[in-house]
């Protein structure tokens, strides 16, 4: 990754135009050719420096529901409980964290009601209390990593 790659990454964390020739617009701003920009982007995606390039959709605004949930899992049941939680297709992510609240998963469902139904089912199967922590307000979501 060289200086130009860094400039491209930093620049493209802003807003990409919706226009007939959007790459041309960005290339001009970066003072490089359109071909060079396309080649660089292809390479950055290829080597996984970028995980994605394109529109970021807000699933919640499209009608789906999300929630972050936490459980305190006793150490001797960690593997068993992981298997139970991960078996639910509604569980999109699940992380072990260094805390008494040691399991944190994200539910993604088609409706708000399904969040509660899924958590009830998880409580029934694990016998553990689920702490459902859906967002109340969003202050910021984004990535402004300096490359």
């Amino acid at each position: 990754m060289d200086e130009l790659d860094r400039r491209i990454i930093n620049y493209l964390q802003g807003d990409f135009p919706i226009d007939n020739s959007p790459y041309q617009i960005i290339a001009q701003k970066l003072d490089i050719s359109e071909d060079e920009l396309l080649k660089r982007l292809d390479h950055l995606l290829e080597n996984r420096t970028l995980t994605r390039f394109g529109p970021m959709y807000d699933i919640q605004k499209l009608g789906g529901s999300f929630s972050l949930c936490a459980i305190r899992v006793p150490a001797n049941r960690f593997e068993e409980v992981t298997q139970i939680i991960n078996s639910f297709p509604e569980v999109a992510h699940n992380y072990e964290r260094d805390h008494d609240f040691n399991m944190w998963y994200v539910l993604a469902t088609e409706s708000l009601a399904q969040i509660d139904i899924t958590n009830q089912s998880i409580e029934d199967k694990t016998g553990l209390k689920v702490y459902n922590m859906p967002k109340i307000q969003e202050f910021f979501v984004g990535l402004h990593f300096q490359a």
Partner: peptide, 21 residues
């Protein structure tokens, strides 16, 4: 453009792999 305006599209751009950076 309409989806951008309503926020259904948050933004259009690159998502860096923060581990790689």
């Amino acid at each position: 453009r309409a989806m951008l305006k309503t926020g259904q599209i948050r933004r259009i751009g690159a998502v860096p792999n923060h581990y790689k950076l």
